[in-house]
Amino acid sequence: MNAESDERKEVAVAAASGSAAGDDRTTERELGSRAPGFIRKSKLLHLSWQVGIFVVGLAVVGAGVAMLVLPGPGWLVIFGGMAIWATEFVWAQIVLRWTRRKVTEAAQRALDPKVRRRNIILTTAGLVIVAVLVGIYVWKFGIVMPWKIEQ
């Protein structure tokens, strides 16, 4: 618990100094448990709360991993499970902050006009190549239906 408390204090000091320095970044929430106060007061109740949060988060992450190979929004469910864990565990909060930062950076890069233009050109070239190959195949072999219809 001491490492978590120390880290929370460091983040709070960094957030306060960042906002005092006039940074444009938004201040992030304090790290740590978001359990109700009456649960945090009792050590046994807080431990059982953490176990419950861990089990629920594990079930959601497990379902997301299964959805990576089965139909369903696998990554979205995995990040949902991480968000459940982040309500109680500092390590999950740090992972989600890092992920949010990387996703934001990737979105900004994807919206860059040069990158968009390059992606459009590459997609168009790929579609033209696929269309030419399909045309050559149909010209050479014709269209053969998988069933035979006799008239």
Results as ranks from 00 to 15, higher is better:
101 R>K: 15
87 T>I: 10
116 R>A: 11
148 K>T: 14
54 F>L: 14
32 G>S: 00
30 E>W: 01
85 W>L: 03
148 K>I: 13
91 W>I: 06
124 T>D: 03
137 Y>M: 13
22 G>M: 00
10 E>T: 10
129 I>V: 15
48 S>E: 09
104 T>A: 15
28 E>T: 15
79 F>K: 02
5 S>M: 10
147 W>V: 13
63 A>D: 08
35 A>I: 08
95 V>N: 12
28 E>H: 13
114 K>C: 04
137 Y>S: 13
7 E>F: 15
86 A>L: 01
96 L>S: 08
14 A>G: 02
3 A>K: 12
59 A>C: 15
116 R>M: 12
76 L>V: 13
132 V>E: 04
16 A>R: 14
78 I>Q: 05
40 R>L: 02
91 W>K: 04
79 F>M: 07
43 K>F: 03
98 W>P: 01
38 F>N: 04
134 V>R: 08
63 A>G: 08
130 V>N: 10
46 H>E: 12
88 E>W: 02
9 K>P: 00
97 R>K: 11
3 A>I: 11
74 G>F: 06
24 D>F: 13
120 I>Q: 11
32 G>T: 01
104 T>M: 12
89 F>T: 04
36 P>T: 02
144 V>H: 04
27 T>K: 09
55 V>P: 00
80 G>W: 01
90 V>Q: 01
18 G>S: 14
20 A>M: 14
121 I>C: 05
122 L>M: 08
150 E>K: 13
39 I>E: 00
20 A>H: 09
61 V>I: 14
136 I>L: 14
36 P>D: 04
4 E>V: 06
21 A>F: 06
37 G>F: 04
121 I>T: 09
104 T>I: 11
123 T>A: 13
119 N>D: 09
150 E>A: 12
134 V>E: 11
111 L>E: 14
17 S>M: 13
100 R>Q: 06
38 F>R: 03
73 P>A: 14
130 V>K: 09
13 V>T: 05
10 E>L: 15
89 F>V: 02
26 T>R: 12
104 T>P: 01
33 S>R: 01
70 L>S: 05
51 V>S: 05
147 W>I: 06
108 Q>G: 07
99 T>C: 00
54 F>H: 03
29 R>N: 12
84 I>P: 00
37 G>S: 03
67 M>A: 07
26 T>S: 08
121 I>N: 05
132 V>R: 06
75 W>I: 11
2 N>E: 13
63 A>R: 11
12 A>D: 02
98 W>G: 10
52 G>R: 06
28 E>V: 15
49 W>V: 03
91 W>E: 06
92 A>T: 07
50 Q>N: 15
74 G>N: 09
7 E>A: 14
69 V>P: 01
51 V>M: 08
25 R>I: 03
131 A>V: 10
127 L>C: 14
77 V>S: 08
126 G>T: 13
64 G>A: 10
90 V>A: 00
72 G>W: 04
137 Y>C: 09
72 G>E: 05
6 D>C: 10
117 R>D: 03
14 A>H: 02
86 A>K: 00
114 K>V: 15
130 V>H: 08
145 M>G: 12
126 G>M: 14
111 L>Y: 05
132 V>W: 09
143 I>R: 00
98 W>E: 13
8 R>Y: 04
25 R>S: 11
27 T>L: 05
25 R>D: 10
28 E>R: 15
109 R>W: 04
100 R>C: 00
109 R>D: 07
87 T>C: 12
